[in-house]
Design a binder for these strands. Structure first.
Length: 319
DNA sequence: AACGAGGACGAAG
DNA sequence: CTTCGTCCTCGTT
């Protein structure tokens, strides 16, 4: 699926990790669709069978975009993206933080291997980035996140944007007159027929959008309070729940360092909104939510990390 | 303007 | 009594 973003794999080709790059490399390969072999940069381009895999596979190409030669993390959008975010905190960077020796047999506190921990953190971060990019594109193009709802005009806009963003060969009028529903119904083979050069890549990108919007529906609607029907839900428990599902909430809240229990609220308003929904408190906002978090300080449940940063907190007793 | 710390008070369990 | 929700003041980024 590396071919999902050919224009990007040229950014940081095979250098996936820091010195002991076997660690994350192997971890990522577990996530990748059917990737096998060490230099699996050119694994099969066949599309993922499930949405889950679609996103997972996309981590790889995104990983390339996030990782730069100087070894620092710059949450930079693809290609000539308009977005530019401040670099990640080096202290709590998931990758740098786990300096595992090349082995990969070492067990971290949780019983998981270090690479698995690193992988989780990379995943939650990257999922957040993917969702954010999609959100950005939606605003930019004035289209919905769900491709099924696209009009033929929306489809064209998306095609143009994707071509430009990922430096794909232009498809011209190959997909003209097609609505989102028809587009989504098309197989990879059909994509390839219409656009022999970039068809399969486009199909892969569309898959990402499909799976992303599928996960989006879960939090907009029911899922918010469906997790467990326990009555007295505590705020810290709620935050943990969100952190457990980076696929759905990764753009709102995510781990900076799961082992240490350090997490960052990326979208304070959204987290507060979700908390308000859960507690049936429509007037909830981050001001109030954060006050409750601060109550946890003296209770020894949550604290500010050693290096205090905005919107970053730490569970005193990480799992 | 948003975030952060913490006092005060009351509601709800 | 505990946990929050609400409101508020003042300091910091």
């Amino acid at each position: 699926m590396g071919s999902a973003s050919p224009g990007l794999s040229s950014v940081a080709p095979s250098r996936l990790l820091l010195a002991p790059d076997a660690v994350l490399r192997t971890g990522l390969e577990k996530v990748a669709v059917g990737a096998a072999g060490p230099e699996s940069r050119d694994w099969s381009p066949s599309p993922p069978a499930t949405p889950e895999q679609g996103l997972s596979a996309f981590y790889l190409s995104y990983f390339d975009m996030l990782y730069h030669d100087d070894g620092s993390w710059a949450a930079k959008g693809p290609g000539a993206s308009a977005r530019d975010e401040p670099p990640e905190e080096p202290e709590q960077c998931p990758v740098i933080d786990s300096q595992a020796p090349g082995g990969g047999l070492d067990l971290a506190p949780g019983g998981l291997t270090l690479e698995e921990h690193s992988l989780e953190q990379v995943q939650s971060m990257v999922v957040g980035e993917v969702l954010k990019d999609i959100e950005t594109a939606c605003k930019l193009l004035n289209i919905t996140a769900d491709p099924v709802d696209w009009s033929p005009g929306n489809v064209q806009k998306w095609l143009l944007w994707t071509e430009h963003q990922y430096r794909l060969p232009p498809v011209g009028k190959a997909f003209q007159e097609l609505g989102g529903k028809e587009l989504c119904a098309m197989s990879e083979e059909q994509f390839r027929q219409r656009s022999p050069l970039g068809g399969e890549v486009l199909h892969a990108h569309l898959d990402i959008w499909k799976s992303a919007s599928a996960s989006e529906e879960s939090w907009t609607d029911s899922e918010v309070d469906s997790s467990c029907s326990g009555q007295p839900i505590h705020l810290w428990q709620f935050l943990r729940e969100l952190l457990l599902k980076p696929h759905s909430y990764g753009r709102f809240i995510r781990w900076l360092n799961k082992e240490k229990g350090i997490f960052k609220i990326e979208d304070s308003a959204q987290v507060a909104r979700l908390w308000g929904i859960r507690k049936n408190r429509p007037a909830m906002n981050y001001d109030k939510l954060s006050r409750s978090i601060r109550q946890y300080y003296k209770k020894g449940i949550i604290r500010k990390p050693d290096i205090s940063q905005r919107l970053v907190y730490q569970f005193v007793h990480p799992i």
